[in-house]
Amino acid sequence: MTAPGKAKVVRGLLIGGALGGAFGALNLTVGDVAGIDTGVSIEKPAPGEPEEPGADNWHAQAARYTGWCVFGGGLIGALSGGAALFRDKLRGGADRPPPGYDE
């Protein structure tokens, strides 16, 4: 691997983005199916009622919400990867504590 530091940040970004998107979609699903107030105010049209075209329809709002969840999760993951990189730099480049450290 030519850039192990970059790999840590990118791995954090990808894992964080995937988890953010999954939890954002789960939040929308739980709020829709179970009727639980999840803090997201996206009004779905009544059954059989056509969706209004434009940027304020339900699908567009749900896509924006999930997109922001992916962005936020990716940002947190990238910061986590950067923190791991900084931690390893303080350890002198080692990615694990020295032997006997956690005994």
Results as ranks from 00 to 15, higher is better:
1 M>V: 13
2 T>V: 12
3 A>S: 14
3 A>W: 09
4 P>L: 15
5 G>Q: 13
5 G>N: 14
7 A>D: 12
8 K>F: 11
8 K>M: 15
9 V>D: 04
10 V>N: 09
10 V>T: 14
10 V>P: 04
13 L>E: 07
13 L>D: 07
14 L>P: 06
16 G>E: 08
16 G>K: 07
16 G>D: 07
16 G>I: 10
17 G>M: 09
17 G>N: 09
18 A>G: 15
18 A>C: 11
18 A>D: 07
19 L>N: 08
19 L>M: 14
20 G>N: 12
21 G>P: 07
22 A>G: 13
23 F>Y: 12
25 A>K: 13
25 A>C: 14
26 L>Y: 04
26 L>W: 04
27 N>W: 04
28 L>D: 06
28 L>V: 12
29 T>Y: 07
29 T>N: 03
29 T>E: 01
30 V>I: 15
32 D>G: 01
32 D>S: 11
33 V>N: 00
33 V>D: 00
33 V>M: 02
33 V>W: 06
33 V>R: 11
34 A>R: 06
35 G>L: 05
37 D>G: 00
37 D>A: 01
37 D>I: 01
37 D>P: 00
37 D>H: 00
38 T>S: 00
38 T>P: 00
39 G>H: 03
40 V>N: 02
40 V>F: 02
43 E>Y: 01
43 E>C: 03
44 K>A: 10
44 K>Y: 06
45 P>Q: 13
45 P>N: 13
46 A>K: 15
47 P>W: 09
48 G>Y: 05
48 G>D: 04
48 G>I: 05
48 G>M: 05
49 E>V: 15
49 E>Q: 13
50 P>C: 05
50 P>A: 10
50 P>N: 10
51 E>Y: 01
52 E>C: 03
52 E>S: 11
52 E>N: 09
52 E>Q: 11
53 P>Y: 06
53 P>I: 13
54 G>E: 08
56 D>P: 01
56 D>L: 13
56 D>C: 10
57 N>I: 07
58 W>M: 14
58 W>H: 15
60 A>D: 08
61 Q>W: 04
61 Q>F: 03
61 Q>H: 08
62 A>I: 02
63 A>V: 11
63 A>E: 01
63 A>C: 03
65 Y>R: 06
66 T>E: 04
67 G>R: 03
69 C>A: 09
69 C>R: 02
72 G>K: 01
73 G>Y: 01
74 G>C: 00
74 G>F: 01
75 L>N: 02
75 L>H: 01
75 L>R: 02
76 I>C: 00
76 I>G: 00
77 G>W: 03
78 A>S: 06
79 L>W: 00
79 L>K: 00
80 S>E: 03
81 G>E: 02
81 G>R: 02
82 G>L: 12
84 A>T: 13
84 A>I: 09
85 L>P: 04
85 L>I: 04
85 L>N: 05
85 L>F: 04
86 F>P: 02
87 R>N: 09
87 R>Q: 11
87 R>S: 11
87 R>A: 14
88 D>L: 08
88 D>T: 07
90 L>V: 07
90 L>Q: 12
90 L>M: 13
90 L>G: 04
91 R>W: 06
92 G>A: 04
92 G>S: 04
93 G>C: 10
94 A>Y: 09
95 D>T: 15
97 P>L: 12
99 P>A: 11
99 P>R: 13
100 G>E: 03
101 Y>I: 01
102 D>L: 15
102 D>W: 10
